[in-house]
Design a protein around this nucleic acid. Sequence first.
RNA 1: CGGGGCGUAGCGCAGCCUGGUAGCGCACCUGCCUUGGGCGCAGGGGGUCGGGCGUUCAAAUCGCCCCGCCCCGACCA
Length: 566
Amino acid sequence: MLWSKLFIPTLRETPAEAEVASHQLLLRAGYIRQLSAGLYNYLFLAQRALLKIQRIVREEMDAIGAQEMYLPALNPAEIWQESGRWDIMGDNMFRLKDRSGHDLCLGMTHEEIMTSIARGELRSYKHLPQIWYQIQTKFRDEPRPKSGLLRVRQFIMKDSYSFDMDQAGLDAAYDKHFQAYRRIFDRCGLKYSAVEAHSGAMGGSQSHEFMVVSDAGEDLVAVCRACGYAANLEKAVATPAPPAAADPAGDLAPEEFHTPGRKTIAEVAAFTGLPETSQMKSLVLVADGQPVLALLRGDHQLSETKFGAVANDPEFRAARPDEIVQWFGAEAGSLGPVGVKNMAIFADLALVGRRNMIAGANKDDYHLRHVTLGEDFQAEVHDLRQVAAGDQCPHCTAALDIIKTVEVGHIFKLGYKYSDTMGLRVLAADGKEVTPIMGSYGIGIERILTCAIELYHDKDGMVLPASIAPFQVVVTPANNSDAAQMDAARSIYQSCLALGLDALLDDRDERPGVKFKDADLIGVPWRVVVGKKLAGGKVELVERKTRQSTDVPVADAAEAVKGKLG
RNA sequence: CGGGGCGUAGCGCAGCCUGGUAGCGCACCUGCCUUGGGCGCAGGGGGUCGGGCGUUCAAAUCGCCCCGCCCCGACCA
């Protein structure tokens, strides 16, 4: 295509509202423009790159036998009410009414719709297995859209759903997706890792997230550099560092002592001269309308995901100050488990085997020493704590790192949640009715582009992998008013097209510096410069990534580019 | 939702404290010039100063309310 005819509004300066590199470059390179918070216009270049990504996704999905569909984004409330997600999704779902007052919503994912298709048509085990997918726009009323295309309210998602007769079938569908995802992200040039993930409260038995390491990311992942263990922090397990001080030995009884004004773990540690690891942290939470006391080692953090799963209420909340006073007779700085009878008590694993710790006395400005789990109070023991950097890897005992990542894909075994609640049944070979088992698999299309930019850019712009760059090569005549240069450039451009390359001819009447800057900015992987060396029959072939330049004869230029692109 | 910041030409900003003519750089248009890393000269166009109400002879500037956007914490591809 001819650059002079295209709409590629590059910016010399970085717009003030953009913080992360990919957002800045997408704006500067003329890929996108913002319409509103979390809503972006994808201009020509973005659309081209996204189409290339979608093509790769399509090819790999088709290769595992998945069938593409196109489904409504506008959904009736009823189908979401059937699965129960009309209420669960809360404010994250865009809702509206039609002219006759019926409730509708904009789809966030398509489990319900896919299941509704299946239950109407799949009748026999002979119809299974099936893998269905779509590449479509999804809507989520994000509490906080941010970071350019990383977290938005309308985005393109590839989501697929598998239907199988049994667990073994699901395992096979899951594995097919795992392999297909590897091929997709490899072809898009991403550096990523598949990590064990939390599979949600309902039914999920196994789950992996495909994560790209990036400071722009919001997901924390615990990784072991020694053995390769990697897990989302929501799910990660590890052995905590040992307590900083040994517990007092002996079968001691709890003993009250005065701690005036000491409310936080740190204040009590300073006051008693004992480390935070010698204390029990008491948190009061309300799950399913019932109060729960959660106990952790003083220096540990509660994992909200783990607690939500254990308490069977992912929407749990912290207790209000007035509730705490009502239930404990003391304020939040002086709470402990001893004598608590009116609620469930959950203790974290790290408290097992500990003796004679410090805890609140349920009396303002007083704490207890010599508190021991199982002797001075009883509790259900669960894994409640969030893993911290420096904890020991559960597989090899090396120290874990915690890194920031972006989730580009997520696969998980749904189980029977939708097929069961929405009444999907087929007849098995023995004539008995069976509920098929499902899997659900997503990929964020824009996130692939965003992550590629985050991973591959320099001070001059994007350095996109050729597989997803909007153009593979740009032919740049240095001086438009030199007819010989223009003729040669046009001829090379035509040859590139004839070889099937995605080529761009920068025929703009601009100075060479402008053309070079723009080409660098938008991230075209290869550039053919037609300039002074034309007198000697040569043009330059320049690689965006390395800046390496080689001279090639005019007649060979197009073939040379094709060779470089493989 | 809680906390913080910002809103003046397409972009980046100054002006606001101390009220009185709306300004700078880039971009854009015209002409000349120039042609290997965002050239130079000359001329020119473009503004509800986010919106509303108020104070004042007079408001971008002071006060109140609202809206929008960005950033930090609770959610997801």
